[in-house]
Nucleic acid binder design. Sequence first.
RNA 1: UCCCCGGUAGCUCAGCAGGUAGAGCGGGUGGCUGUUAACCACUUGGUCGGCGGUUCGAGUCCGUCCCGGGGAGCCA
Length: 437
Amino acid sequence: MFSPEIAPVVNIADLPQYEGQAVTIRGWVYHLRSSGKVRFLVVRDGTGLVQGVLVKGRLPEEDFHQFDRLGQESSLILRGQVRAELRAPGGYEVEVTGLTPLHICQNYPIAHKEHGVGFLLDQRHLWLRAPRQQAILRLRDELARACRDFFYDRGFVLVDTPILTPTACEGTTTLFATDYLDRGKAYLSQSGQLYLEAAAMALGKVYCFGPTFRAEKSKTRRHLMEFWMVEAEAAFYLLEDILQLCEDLVRYLVLRVLERRNRELEMLDRDTTLLSKVSQSFPRLSYTEAVVRLQTEGVAITWGEDFGGDEETRLSQMFDRPVLIHRYPRQIKAFYMEADRDNPELALCVDMLAPEGYGEIIGGSQRVADLDILLARLQEYHLPQEPLEWYLDLRRYGSVPHAGFGLGLERLLAWVCGLKHVREAIPFPRLLDRLYP
RNA sequence: UCCCCGGUAGCUCAGCAGGUAGAGCGGGUGGCUGUUAACCACUUGGUCGGCGGUUCGAGUCCGUCCCGGGGAGCCA
């Protein structure tokens, strides 16, 4: 191994700063080519790719011949001279003066060509090494950080909600059950909202960010069994405040990514002019208006029905920005949503649909603040009261109007990246009938 | 749970009207002093998803099961 004093260990992304200098690079073989006495070795290190050139006679004979043993993804350390080179991909290359393989491997399963989705998902642990997957993961990281920055800057306090819960939050979706020692069943959380409401009564403005579990047998491009959701809740907020807050959040997130992760978006061939439309205000439509617009376009839907994937797609394609649909019929929404005073048939709620057919990325609402109404709702929705006594307490002791929303990270990321399926938006997707790796 | 499509070499696929298995990539060997998914030559590689049926004969036709993909319902 080379001592760093002779040649500093450098990230490939930083190579231009080291032009003309000797450097050490640690990484993996991305690609190999040989022309006999001149050999090319494309190396990746997680920050980028660089071509190493081995010329017979210009490095120790033994190191030169190590090249023959290398296969794709063999790990290695190499030392060489950085130089600008127009013929090299990226404009810079390294003239290799020393090559030390760390681990030789052959038959790396993922070649530089088209592969089927099933195969790639089985190889997800290796697929992550692909430049495209790296770009997606970096964008995910940026969005996650940006969420935290957004809420921190606005005085929201991070409150971690439990993952193991005694009951369903909404009583609608199917939950993953697990044994809670000898105390019966526990369920994996499908939302932190109810707990967040309690925290909002303590701290005012709060949010949580963590994994969420839905045991629905959904098999579509928008569904995961396990996904990450950022949820916000604020005391004294009304529906209008939530509309503004979630619009501000999505605008902030997208602009942040445009500003800091342009390289990754470029690698994904994302058309960023579409994303930059978020700087304009988002259209707002009531559910009723949305139904009318759909009907005008010939979609068979009647007032009172929930939007399916098709309807969401059609609606989101009507605009070049995310659109906010508010005040759905109460019947098709969750028990905790406050009714509209002007029309009690309507819930004070909002869904944000991403453009380009990506569909729902946010769901939010103003919550029922009155104890008696909430009790009636539990009956109406056939929900047990006893396990929700603590939730009812929030209406017994200093109840205030409050509202919140949840944003699905993978759906947002899929839209930002222009992915065809959310399964690429999470490092290790959990899908129907797929729990490996 | 339902509907549609698929399962042939490690991978991506072709295989005509039923006649006994192919290509490219990858792997291996050799060649090449500037390659860009390099190229050239040679080579390795298969219970054609399982079971049953029709037939002289099934990768091919029929039935059934398994697995995968897409969608519906439901949701972020």
